[in-house]
Design a protein around this nucleic acid. Structure first.
Lengths: 138, 138
DNA sequence: CTCCGTGCAAAAAATTTGCAACTCA
DNA sequence: TGAGTTGCAAATTTTTTGCACGGAG
């Protein structure tokens, strides 16, 4: 039994071919920091010879999001992108010089964010933070 | 000569009625933290008796963004929202319950962000931070 | 065998574009 | 006047939904 199959079982979703394949694509690209859109995944699957519908990709991604195994981002214009949720949280720092993306994590900020929400009667569910930076002396 | 008229002059854009009206709507709502979508602004204008096209609202907002007088956000699902850029910087907190957007500013985090960049040899140019929160049950 | 899930096509929703008419400087 | 701008309609793009068939348990 594959990894994906197990993971799907845990969510209560039936281990169907489209779901397994979509999860595979997301897992394979997760180390490359490649946030993929529904369309991207769809094309990837077609190229791999799988016969899936784009609507299914959308539906499955929505189900995965509800199940808490993928995260949907609205970073980009015009379309959402998805990434598998891993255990290590990180934020992003983007170099304006060359577009390189660095990951970082800061407990002080994480803590303060929770406090800010709580001070206003909310609980922090999640956050997104991106720092746009430029190399000093260049 | 109106405020909006002056502001438009500075950008090099012709001070046309649709542009002035759109800027007015954005200015009027900026204190209410009401980040509006193109559709919102369009409906607001129609309600006020102005005869504008939705396409024009989109076009004008894009021009305003290029001119640096409004900022476009993608924190909601499905559509972008806009706000006039003012001198006081703030970040956003989005309620997952009803989509309300709150603004806040935290010097501690601002300071830490600069340090994080500097520790890695960068200078912080700008940043985006959005907290997604949920009302605490009681 | 029974549902849950799928593909397809069509619908919605969000945004962009082509173009003739219009208007501000 | 005349380049820049607009409104309208049609085109695109992104995502969702209805429905009959098909596959997993």
């Amino acid at each position: 039994m594959s990894n994906q199959n197990k993971e799907l079982k845990k969510t209560g979703l039936k281990a169907t071919l489209p779901r397994i394949r979509i999860l595979e694509v997301l897992e394979l690209t997760k180390n490359e920091e490649a946030h993929m859109s529904a369309e991207d995944i769809y094309k990837e699957l077609l190229a791999a010879g799988d016969d899936v519908g784009l609507a299914t990709v959308y539906r499955v991604l929505t189900q995965f999001e509800s199940a808490g195994i993928v995260k949907k981002h609205n970073f980009e214009e015009g379309h959402a992108v998805y990434e598998v949720i891993s255990d290590d949280h990180h934020d992003h720092m983007v170099s304006l010089d060359d577009g390189t993306i660095y990951e970082f994590n800061d407990d002080l900020i994480e803590q303060r964010q929770k406090e800010i929400a709580q001070e206003r009667g909310f609980e922090l569910v999640e956050h997104s933070m991106v720092l746009y930076v430029r190399k000093i002396n260049s």
